[in-house]
C-alpha cells in the first residue's frame, strides 16, 4: 500500500455514550468516518445495537488533548504526599459518632 492511500484513510472519531439519564457519557471506542454526521450514524449502528445508550457524543480524535502519564511522575511513586486531602487523615473521637 502506498503512503498516498494511507493518507486517504477516513479520519478517526472517538465515541462516548450515556447509557441512561443520570449517568456520565462514557468512552466506548472509536471509528473512522468522513465527517461528524457519518461518525454519528455509524456510532449509532455499531455501538447502540441493543439500546446501550440514550445519548451519543462523537469527537474527532485529533481534537482531543491528552495528558502524558509520565508528566505526573506517577510511574515510580504514587502522588500521595497530600494525605490531608483524605478523610482518614483526621482523628475524630468515637463518641462523636459517624462523620
Amino acid at each position: 500500500m502506498t503512503n498516498k492511500e494511507t493518507a486517504a484513510e477516513l479520519p478517526l472519531y472517538e465515541v462516548f455514550i450515556r447509557s441512561k439519564n443520570g449517568l456520565h457519557h462514557k468512552h466506548v471506542g472509536s471509528l473512522h468516518a468522513s465527517d461528524a454526521e457519518m461518525a454519528m450514524t455509524n456510532a449509532r449502528d455499531v455501538y447502540t445495537r441493543r439500546s446501550e445508550g440514550v445519548s451519543i457524543w462523537v469527537v474527532q480524535t485529533s481534537d482531543i488533548i491528552a495528558s502524558n502519564p509520565e508528566d505526573k511522575g506517577s510511574f515510580y511513586d504514587p502522588n500521595d504526599d497530600k494525605t490531608y486531602r483524605h478523610p482518614t487523615f483526621y482523628n475524630i473521637p468515637e463518641e462523636v459518632g459517624h462523620m
Partner: peptide
C-alpha cells in the same frame, strides 16, 4: 464510496 464520502465532507 470512501473517496466520495471524503470528497463530500
Amino acid at each position: 464510496v470512501r473517496d466520495a464520502a471524503l470528497a463530500y465532507a
